[in-house]
Simulated scan of single mutants.
Amino acid sequence: MSRRLGALAVAAALLLSACSSGTDPDGEPADGGTAGEAGWSYVSGDGKTYTADEVPTRIVAHAYAAKALLSYGITPVAVYADGPIASDVGLQGVDLTGVEVLSEEWGVIDVEKAATLQPDLIVGDWWPAEDAYSGMEGGVEEESKKLADLAPVVGPSQGDSIVDLVEGYATLAKSLGADTAVVDQQRTDFDAAVAAFEEATAAKPGLTALAISPYEDTYAVAVPEYAPELLDLQSWGLDVIVPTTPDPDFPYWQSLSFENADTYQPDLLMFDDRNHPGNEDTLTAQPIASSIKAYAAGATTTWPAYWLHTYPDYAAQLERLTTVVEQADENVGDA
C-alpha cells in the first residue's frame, strides 16, 4: 500500500465507523438510513450500521450502483464497471459526464487514481453468496481490492428480490440527501407493470421458461436462487425452470456441455441480455440447437441479468416481457 493510500485509509477510518448490526447509535432499531444534523447512518447489506459525523459526498460507486444513485440526483466522483460502459446493456442512458472511470474490466480497478479523488464512501451491491461487495469478490485482483482501504464500502444486498435491492438504493440515496419525491411515481408505474405481468402469466399457467447464457463450449443455465430477477418473475407467476445440478464451485449456474443442451425443454428460452446476441449466435452454431424445441420454434427472448437497480428500468423490462408472455405458446416444450 502506498503512503498516500494509507493516509486516506486512516482519514476514512476517523470519519466513518461500522457499528453493531441493525442498530442506530442509541441502540434502537435502525430504519435503513438517515441524514440530518446528527450526521449520517446507513444499515448496509453486510448487516452493519455505518455512521459519520457528516453526510458523505465524495462517492466512488460500482457502475450499476452509480446509475441508481444518479436516478436520485446523487452524482459519484468516480465509477468502476465490469466491462465497456458504452456496450453495457445495464448502463444504457446513464450520463457519466464529469465522472472519473476507474475500470471497464471486471476485477481490475485503478485504486491509485481513486486515491487521488479522496472518496469518503464506496458503494456497491453486497453479494451474500460471495460475502463481498461488488468489486471485492473472489477473483478480483488483490491490488484492486485495496479500494476498500480508501473508505468504508456500503450498499444494499442482493437477495431474494430485485425490488428489495431497488428499495435499498432509494433508502441509501435518501440518507445521502437526495430528494426522493420522484420515487413515489416511479414505484406507482412499476407496480402497474407488475400487475400487467401477473395478468399475462395467469393467462398462461402452463408456460415454462429457461434462463441461459451459452458461451464457448458451455450451455450455462441460470439458477434462480442466485438470480433475484428470476425469483421475482417466479413470484409473479412465470414458471422459470430450476436446474437440478448447480455448479458446486459457483452455484449461480449449471454448466452443461452443448451435447446435453436439450436436457431442459422449456416453452420459452431466455438469453442473458448482457451477452446478447453473441450468446444466441453461439447456440445457433451448435448442431443441437434444432433439438431445443423452444429455439427451433423461435420462442426466444432475453432476461435482464444482474443489472436492474431502478424502478424505471425494471418497469420497462416487465412491460417487454409481458408482451412476450402474451404472445408465447405454453405447449412448445411438450411438442
Score class of each variant (00 low, 15 high):
residue 206 G to I: 02
residue 157 S to H: 03
residue 101 V to E: 02
residue 251 P to D: 05
residue 134 S to F: 00
residue 235 S to M: 07
residue 207 L to Q: 01
residue 167 E to W: 06
residue 209 A to F: 10
residue 65 A to E: 00
residue 15 L to G: 10
residue 211 A to E: 00
residue 38 A to T: 13
residue 166 V to P: 04
residue 179 D to I: 05
residue 42 Y to A: 03
residue 270 M to P: 04
residue 140 V to S: 09
residue 93 G to Y: 02
residue 214 P to H: 02
residue 307 W to R: 02
residue 56 P to Q: 01
residue 195 A to K: 13
residue 303 W to V: 10
residue 178 A to W: 12
residue 14 L to M: 15
residue 65 A to G: 07
residue 302 T to W: 03
residue 271 F to R: 11
residue 85 I to M: 05
residue 259 E to G: 04
residue 55 V to L: 03
residue 305 A to N: 11
residue 93 G to M: 08
residue 279 N to E: 03
residue 179 D to T: 11
residue 122 I to Y: 01
residue 290 S to G: 10
residue 204 K to A: 08
residue 88 D to P: 01
residue 212 I to C: 06
residue 155 G to H: 01
residue 320 R to M: 14
residue 308 L to W: 09
residue 177 G to M: 11
residue 261 A to V: 07
residue 241 I to L: 13
residue 152 P to L: 10
residue 75 T to W: 11
residue 328 A to Q: 06
residue 242 V to K: 14
residue 176 L to M: 06
residue 234 Q to L: 07
residue 329 D to S: 07
residue 124 G to F: 02
residue 263 T to M: 12
residue 108 V to M: 13
residue 291 S to W: 04
residue 189 D to Y: 05
residue 96 L to N: 05
residue 251 P to C: 10
residue 95 D to L: 10
residue 7 A to Y: 07
residue 329 D to T: 09
residue 10 V to H: 07
residue 252 Y to F: 11
residue 212 I to T: 13
residue 78 A to Y: 02
residue 309 H to Q: 15
residue 8 L to F: 01
residue 295 Y to V: 09
residue 257 S to E: 08
residue 221 V to N: 02
residue 110 D to R: 03
residue 117 L to F: 09
residue 185 Q to N: 12
residue 272 D to H: 12
residue 52 A to M: 07
residue 248 P to W: 01
residue 298 G to I: 12
residue 227 A to S: 11
residue 98 G to V: 04
residue 218 T to F: 01
residue 83 G to F: 09
residue 107 G to H: 02
residue 47 G to R: 06
residue 286 Q to V: 02
residue 111 V to A: 04
residue 217 D to M: 07
residue 187 R to P: 00
residue 264 Y to V: 03
residue 223 V to I: 05
residue 224 P to I: 00
residue 207 L to I: 06
residue 95 D to I: 09
residue 149 D to Y: 15
residue 30 A to L: 03
residue 297 A to H: 00
residue 202 A to D: 14
